[in-house]
Design a protein around this nucleic acid. Structure first.
Lengths: 260, 260
DNA sequence: ACATTTATTCCGTATATTGACACAAAAGAC
DNA sequence: GTCTTTTGTGTCAATATACGGAATAAATGT
């Protein structure tokens, strides 16, 4: 009841503490360039030195962590390798690439491929623009689902199951962020009608984005393709053009997904 | 002394079992497309159903695993996201990209970026060739350090510290694999002399590769750039040309690394 | 040389994890 | 439709497991 906002440090509600701690250590180590010492880690995570030490030992034995010769511990690439297998399994990237490339050529803007995760979307692929002023989300990065193009597109496709969950999580990021469920209802309806989602700077003030969902035969959205542009580039007709393009691209990829 | 070759199933020497089991589950789930049931998992890993169940619960609570509505569990992308941060920290990819792209344009072959990990190298980036018959290592994949171009390049740069370790691990993969330490000594010496490593099909019969190391100011190799080509493409002068190119590329990237 | 910080080991103890069993809810057989 | 089998989920006591504190060792700084 106390961890709804923070959700991090937290009293464990009822979970295997040792696994939990081990993963915390892993997270901490991967997040930090270079190694950390035992003491440093234990303080940071509020654990005993002994405990931290033993956890590190097993993480080493399992190959997730390396013990550098200067007595400092750092994460190996194993975590990434394992995680990558997961991404590869949904070979969305491969299937989506051609359409994304086409979009990139056609628009010259940054193209994203994103999948839903909790109430966020995670970018699993992108094609960069040559424009020096361009969107800066890295692959692996995430954004709230209710205020970016890709997210709203996915939301629109699965609104039945998602509406109630997002309802209480409409966090504000900019003036334009939709924080009212009724406004969201309307926006989603519009999205469904025109076939693409349009984010008018609801997450980052100066960054607009378009999105359209990739759907399985069952109709469920598993990902979305998106285009991001700087606000200043928005001109008459731009919205319709980019929106149409991204919708077409998503359509064509969804088509391919059926054949797998 | 029993797990030096295999290193996998293993008798735990003395490690926190719960963390170990939890990570096993995570590995298994990420490796398998689609979800697995708790019974299936428990059988596969030789654990109790209750135990598996509880571990899954905590993995869910921590966001690493999702419980699908058909009662099956599957890995989320969290593992990957976390691991990715680790890769991002060495922003080698960013720095290396231009040189790799140049190599790709110049040669039309597959270009790899690899980092050492234990006695292997892990591919952290690549640029694909349009050639239908091309190298097939995925990003995130790995290869033995002593028989691919990138690996041997790294080996050559850090031979002082690595020689003794690889000495007992010269596993054979093809007829050409170097399994004799003295032969390796000679090959490494040659590599240092000419500035690039040349793998004549020592890992995969039909796949040749070139490699050159990326070194830090201190002289330590942290990664390598490689070119892979099908054996049939090897002609007079090809070796010198590709070797020279990859050496130059690595040189230029190493230069940039100094400025960070 | 001494003081201080850090990594590593030891060990008795209690807590947190475990596995057998029980129950519920599907799935499948017929 | 009922019965059987399989799967997911909860319970609970037993004890093995992981824990924390203190002791040691190694490194670092002064």
């Amino acid at each position: 009841m106390a961890d709804s906002v923070d959700g991090r440090k937290t009293d464990a509600p009822k979970l295997d503490s040792t696994l939990s701690k081990g993963l915390m250590i892993l997270e901490t180590l991967t997040a930090h360039r270079g190694g950390k010492g035992v003491t440093e880690l234990s303080k940071e995570l509020g654990l005993t030195k002994s405990n931290t030490f033993r956890l590190l030992q097993t993480l080493c034995a399992l190959g997730y962590v390396r013990n550098n010769r200067d007595k400092t511990y750092s994460a190996t690439l194993k975590t990434w390798q394992i995680g990558r297998a997961g991404v590869e399994n949904l070979n969305l990237r491969e299937v989506s690439r051609p359409a994304m490339q086409h979009l990139a050529n056609e628009t010259g803007e940054v193209i994203y491929l994103a999948v839903p995760e909790h109430l966020q979307i995670v970018y699993i692929d992108k094609i960069d623009s040559s424009d020096p002023i361009r969107s800066w989300n890295p692959i692996g990065g995430s954004a709230p689902i209710h205020c970016v193009g890709t997210g709203k597109a996915i939301l629109a496709a699965n609104y039945g199951t998602l509406r109630d969950t997002v309802k209480h999580n409409l966090v504000r990021y900019t003036d334009r962020t939709i924080t009212d469920i009724e406004a969201l209802d309307a926006d989603i309806a519009l999205t469904r009608k025109r076939g693409y989602a349009f984010d008018t700077g609801e997450f980052r003030e100066r960054g607009l984005s378009f999105g359209a969902a990739l759907t399985l035969p069952a109709g469920e959205a598993v990902a979305a393709i998106g285009i991001s542009i700087p606000r200043r580039k928005l001109m008459d007709g731009t919205e319709e053009r980019l929106g149409g393009l991204v919708a077409d691209a998503a359509q064509s990829v969804s088509q391919r997904l059926k054949l797998l």
